[in-house]
């Protein structure tokens, strides 16, 4: 894969080969980001398709990504996620399934059992914090990469990450918090 800058320039020129490379390079990442945010593989795949079609639409409209291809794709994915969640909350109570599946945390605390609890708490974070968590832990991007995608400083992302994790940790059972 060539440099992102050079790829971006070719995309801006409607280079079909470059646009195919963009799809091949970013599809799985964007899909995993969306699946992480939504927890719904089917919807994540559909929205991933929409992200790339949005790129074609933007090029047609003469408004191509200007500075960062990855930043542009993740931003569209993020906006589509927000729209999807908003739309879904209007029709189906979002937490219903998760709450029903929540395991009872009694004697033996296992990390895997905490996942549904945290997922519940994750959805209560601010949209920006959810985005940072998805990039840092879903995509395992570095702080610097995350900061670049968000167009923020590394310090700002560190603070967002800290607040998000602290908020999530408050939802962990007491046994885990003091286990040691």
């Amino acid at each position: 894969m060539e440099g992102e800058r050079s790829l971006l320039e070719r995309v801006q020129q409607h280079d079909q080969q470059a646009l195919a490379e963009v799809h091949d390079h970013y599809f799985d990442r964007i899909y995993q980001y969306l699946n992480y945010r939504l927890g719904e593989p089917e919807a994540a795949a559909d929205l991933t398709g929409e992200v790339f079609l949005a790129l074609v639409k933007a090029l047609k409209a003469g408004k191509p990504p200007r500075t960062s291809l990855a930043g542009w794709l993740y931003t569209v994915a993020r906006n589509l996620t927000a729209d999807y969640i908003k739309e879904k909350s209007r029709t189906v109570p979002l937490m219903e399934d998760l709450v029903a599946d929540e395991p009872s945390l009694t004697d033996q605390i296992h990390l895997s059992q905490l996942a549904p609890v945290l997922r519940d708490a994750l959805l209560k974070l601010t949209e920006e914090q959810q985005h940072v968590i998805a990039l840092r832990f879903g995509q395992e991007l570095s702080l610097a990469e995350t900061a670049q995608l968000l167009d923020k400083t590394v310090g700002a992302v560190k603070a967002l990450q800290h607040r998000a994790l602290a908020s999530l940790a408050r939802h962990m059972p007491q046994e885990v918090q003091h286990d040691g």
Partner: peptide
């Protein structure tokens, strides 16, 4: 400790790729 536990749980160790058929159709 609780923050790292949260980070552990939040990390998806084996992210599932998109279904190949669906991916091919979208491509």
């Amino acid at each position: 400790r609780p923050l790292l536990y949260a980070a552990t749980v939040l990390t998806d160790p084996n992210p599932v790729p998109a279904p190949a058929e669906k991916k091919a159709a979208l491509r």
